[in-house]
């Protein structure tokens, strides 16, 4: 299954999930996406910009702390209408370090259920599967 198919499978298997996208945090561009409805590219790119901003804050926080168990793989953004979860692989090689899965759900529970399969998808992409 190609990446577009994997994104669609991820979205369709998660109740309450409206959008799953694959983005590059470096260029802040969404490269592939699967959504219940048509989403303007501007919205997708802003999602990616927000993810990059969230991870930059997480990295700043991680740099300040001495705790070895900081979960730097995910960032959650909550708005009155939706919950967005952004997932990356912190220990990824340089060429895939900016890869991220961006998800939009109607509640936080749905968003959290996406973490494990999204991490698996990123691992597969990293390994070239």
């Amino acid at each position: 299954m190609d990446i577009a198919g994997r994104l669609s499978a991820l979205r369709e298997s998660t109740p309450g999930c409206a959008l799953v996208a694959f983005g590059d945090l470096g260029t802040r561009l969404v490269l592939r996406s699967s959504a219940a409805g048509q989403q303007p590219q501007e919205y997708l790119d802003q999602l990616c910009a927000q993810a990059a901003h969230g991870f930059s804050l997480q990295d700043a926080l991680t740099d300040q702390t001495t705790s070895p168990n900081v979960d730097a793989a995910e960032v959650i953004v909550v708005t009155p209408q939706e919950t967005r979860i952004y997932i990356r692989t912190p220990g990824a090689a340089q060429d895939t370090a900016n890869d991220a899965i961006l998800c939009v759900c109607d509640n936080e529970h749905s968003a959290r259920t996406l973490v494990t399969p999204a991490m698996a998808l990123l691992d597969d992409l990293c390994a070239g599967v």
Partner: peptide, 19 residues
């Protein structure tokens, strides 16, 4: 402008400082 989305509607971000 790239980051204006968080400003349009109220929102909050969840980060980790430890486990």
């Amino acid at each position: 402008h790239a980051l204006r989305m968080p400003e349009i509607t109220p929102s909050y971000l969840v980060l980790s400082i430890s486990s």
